[in-house]
């Protein structure tokens, strides 16, 4: 079943066409990678799917609904969560609170219930916290007791990227967008990350990932779409993409065949 369908999407910034009539589909439960050289339009595509940018032309369809005119917070409610290429954690909040904040749109306590700490608000907060701890455990941040109380900004770079994933999962998304999750990670952390990504997909959450680390992408993706200069130049299984002459040309340049 197709969960996300990007249909002839174009994005123009004053004179520059960042994404040009691009189409691809993401299957339910798959790990789908979006790759391409710098400036290929991957992050622009992500921002259009997440709702931070509007499309100039074309349509994005998610779970049977047209996303046109919906804002980022609407899309979160519909089931699209994301992580950010530039880490965007709530730095002055602790680790657990960051994950709990990710569950905002799945919780309901209002201002009065919150101020008076009514039993309903307390119960919901406890359930949210339990779920947050579970997720931290799931992504591997639950090891050291008390780490949950550290401020998010004081974690290491790799840990912050992992925390972004836990926060995104807290909203119980159907689709999670991972924007260069391995950037700045050491090899051990990358292995752990691949494992986490596979486990996310096993839980039935579809993953769309933008990543420069080819080893990670080839190991984890079910399907790969390659963009270059805003145009889709290839799509297929990892082993086909690896040998695709178009892709090699885009990454290494003309004349690569002679090497």
């Amino acid at each position: 079943m197709t969960l996300l369908k990007v249909d002839n999407v174009t994005k123009r910034f004053a004179g520059l066409t960042a994404v040009d009539s691009c189409s691809f589909s993401v299957e339910q439960g798959a790990v789908h990678a979006l790759i391409g050289p710098n400036g290929a339009g991957k992050t622009t595509m992500f921002n259009m799917i997440g709702g931070a940018l509007a499309v100039s032309d074309g349509a994005i369809n998610f779970d049977g609904q047209d996303l046109a005119g919906t804002l980022p917070h609407d899309r979160m409610k519909m089931g699209i969560a994301r992580t950010f290429q530039l880490i965007s954690l709530f730095k002055e909040m602790n680790v657990i609170e960051n994950v709990m904040a990710g569950a905002y749109c799945r919780t309901h306590s209002g201002i009065l219930a919150s101020m008076l700490n009514l039993p309903s608000a307390r119960r919901e907060a406890e359930a949210t916290k339990a779920r947050a701890l579970e997720l931290l455990d799931f992504v591997g941040l639950g090891d050291s007791a008390g780490a949950g109380l550290m401020l998010a900004g004081s974690l290491s770079y790799g840990e912050q990227r992992i925390l972004e994933i836990a926060r995104a999962l807290a909203g119980d998304p159907k689709l999670i967008l991972l924007d260069e999750p391995a950037a700045g990670m050491n090899p051990t952390e990358k292995i752990r990350l691949s494992d986490t990504i596979r486990q996310i997909a096993n839980k039935g959450v579809t993953v769309l990932i933008v990543e420069h680390d080819m080893q990670l992408v080839m190991g984890v993706a079910d399907k790969i779409t390659v963009l270059d200069h805003g145009v889709r130049i290839a799509e297929g299984l990892p082993k086909d993409i690896q040998n695709d002459p178009e892709v090699i040309r885009a990454y290494i340049g003309e004349g690569a065949e002679q090497c």
Partner: peptide
């Protein structure tokens, strides 16, 4: 509370807060 976390999240990162349904 949940609302308080939303307050702090818009303080710490506007765009991320919006992306999380706030």
């Amino acid at each position: 509370s949940r609302v308080g976390r939303a307050f702090r999240s818009i303080r710490d990162d506007n765009a991320a807060a919006a992306a999380f349904g706030i």
